[in-house]
């Protein structure tokens, strides 16, 4: 599928995505990466410039939004301010011409589901952000759609409430067995909630996989950088030996890494190492080096060290704050090492 707004550039370049029934799929990416456009094409508010969309085997390209039967939760909730909570929820049922008794029953059930029972008579403006969020959720679910789209629904909430709502949405999804397509730019939100995550950048899905694969086995430099913290060391491939490559780093030293997405001999590559996979000491034999501690940040459960390693002054180590661990001081030079499997050679 492709999408262009101005006929000159493509916002969505090449989208080919199959979503399983009952799946929680997240479209994750920086702003302007095309993820919301994809969602709007699914909902029918944007037309695809090229390509087809199928819903349960049925092409829906030419079906107007109101006939697609897709529930949607908007970023600013879009609760109708001139209607009460009950009227808001009853709206999709009214346009479906359901009887009064049935409507009331469904509204009550939906409000119950999001723990908002008893709020039917309130206006949206009388609710807190979190309550509005719940009502918006209930409204998208009340007409029992098979597919629910959510466009950064938690963006306006504070951190604590957001984390709480993440779990509520996840539990609702598990309980109801609905299919959810969720758009966010918050990677921790995506990791917490999703069955699968599609990382978007520049109108292209960079990687589509489950959360742990995405974090532990990023397939390219963008994904490694975008999901979680990541240490980058640049170098040139010297020799390729099956799955292992030898790399000549830019400061002249040698290293070994797992070949994931690097070219053959002589091509440039980025080594990606997660901060928590770097250990102190040289017990691990694969990759050893020295690092000069430049800065340390106390974060309670762990301590974050910024070091100069192989010429990179932004190399980060994250060590758990346990009693066995020796604490490093600024200016000290420490022995550090990492496993070959945790060091992935990616495209540059």
């Amino acid at each position: 599928m492709q999408k262009s707004y101005d006929g000159k550039s493509l916002v969505v370049k090449d989208l080919n995505l199959a979503i399983g029934r009952g799946e929680f799929l997240t479209l994750l990416g920086p702003s302007g990466s095309g993820k919301t456009t994809c969602l709007m094409m699914l909902a029918g508010f944007e037309t695809a410039t090229h390509g087809d969309i199928f819903l349960a085997g049925r092409p829906i390209n030419n079906i107007p939004p109101h006939k697609r039967g897709i529930g949607m939760v908007f970023q600013n909730y879009a609760l109708f301010p001139h209607m009460t909570v009950g009227e808001n929820l009853s709206f999709p049922l009214e346009v479906r011409k359901l009887g009064k008794a049935e409507r009331e029953e469904k509204v009550r059930t939906a409000l119950d589901m999001v723990k908002m029972d008893g709020f039917e008579k309130r206006r949206p403006s009388q609710l807190s952000g979190g309550q509005q969020q719940r009502v918006a959720l209930a409204r998208a679910l009340v007409f029992e759609p098979d597919l629910v789209l959510m466009d950064e629904p938690l963006g306006a909430l504070d951190k604590q409430l957001r984390e709480h709502m993440q779990f509520e949405i996840k539990h609702l999804h598990e309980r109801l067995g609905i299919t959810v397509v969720y758009v966010t730019h918050d990677q921790s939100e995506a990791l917490t909630m999703s069955d699968r995550i599609a990382v978007f950048n520049d109108g292209v899905i960079q990687q589509l996989s489950n959360p742990d694969d995405l974090y532990e086995r990023p397939e390219n430099a963008f994904v490694a950088q975008f999901i979680g913290e990541n240490n980058r060391l640049t170098g040139t491939v010297e020799q390729r030996n099956g799955k292992i490559v030898s790399i000549a780093l830019d400061d002249g030293s040698k290293s070994k890494a797992l070949a994931v997405n690097c070219g053959g001999q002589g091509s440039r590559t980025v080594l990606s190492i997660r901060p928590e996979r770097v250990v102190l000491g040289w017990e691990n034999e694969s990759n050893t080096t020295l690092g000069e501690v430049l800065e340390l940040t106390y974060l309670g459960d762990h301590i974050r060290y910024r070091m100069k390693v192989h010429g990179n002054p932004d190399f980060v180590l994250r060590l758990p704050n346990t009693s066995e661990h020796a604490k490093l001081t600024v200016g000290e030079t420490a022995k550090i090492s990492w496993n070959i499997d945790d060091c992935r050679a990616l495209d540059i």
Binding site: H66, K67, M72, F80, F91, V95, R139
Partner: peptide, 25 residues
């Protein structure tokens, strides 16, 4: 514009979305 979109996503036709959601506001 999300109000009208929300109404349509819930199954309201263009006219219903206008008359029930946009017009009152």
């Amino acid at each position: 514009p999300s109000y009208v979109r929300a109404a349509k996503s819930m199954g309201a036709s263009d006219w219903t979305a206008f008359w029930r959601v946009y017009f009152p506001q």
